[in-house]
């Protein structure tokens, strides 16, 4: 089954209510997530530095997958609008949807969600990889600002 590197929309950033266990890690180790929106074009999957949130309808769609979606847990996230969001309010939806935190914990190329790449000493190179069916789910909703390219597993590249 093919897998894809996905880069979702990044319409916001970590908010002040975030509690980090390791801010420097990639992805950062977050205990409590607060996502502050500077804008939003309506995509269902959003990110900031390898940390992902999704709309409730995305979560519901993923939870309907059969066999059950793997490599992700859903948790609470606090979402707020920044002053930038309000300043240009006519460009954004008046109200934010309800969002959930997608905590990625799967194995790349095996589970539906995984974080590929590695963080060596110094520069990191990591990204989200999802299964074909997850990408299809994203595209069935709103994925207008996201991008996806096929993921080539290192073992397949060496062959």
């Amino acid at each position: 089954m093919p897998f894809y590197i996905v880069e979702p929309e990044v319409p916001g950033r970590f908010g002040k209510q975030c509690v980090f266990k390791d801010r420097l890690a990639r992805p950062p180790v977050v205990e409590k997530l607060h996502y502050e929106f500077d804008g939003w074009s309506g995509d269902d999957l959003l990110s900031v530095i390898l940390t992902y949130i999704g709309t409730l309808r995305l979560a519901a769609a993923l939870q309907k997958l059969d066999p059950p979606v793997s490599g992700v847990e859903f948790d609470d996230v606090v979402v707020t609008k920044s002053s930038e969001y309000r300043r240009w309010g006519e460009l954004q939806p008046d109200n934010l949807d309800d969002f959930v935190w997608l905590k990625i914990n799967g194995d790349v190329g095996v589970d539906d969600f995984g974080i590929a790449g590695r963080q060596q000493v110094g520069v990191a190179d990591r990204y989200l990889v999802v299964s074909e069916r997850v990408l299809a789910t994203l595209r069935s909703l709103n994925f207008s600002q996201g991008t996806a390219v096929e993921y080539l597993h290192p073992s397949s590249r060496s062959m």
Binding site: E7, E9, L24, G39, W40, S41, Q92, A124, Q145
Partner: peptide, 26 residues
């Protein structure tokens, strides 16, 4: 073009930079 370019392309581009260069990496 604020949502598509500024908060779209540019933010993704910088997010990629932050992914690649954690604080203290250089």
């Amino acid at each position: 073009i604020d949502n598509t370019f500024h908060k779209g392309e540019l933010r993704k581009d910088w997010d990629s930079f932050y992914r690649k260069y954690p604080p203290g990496c250089l």
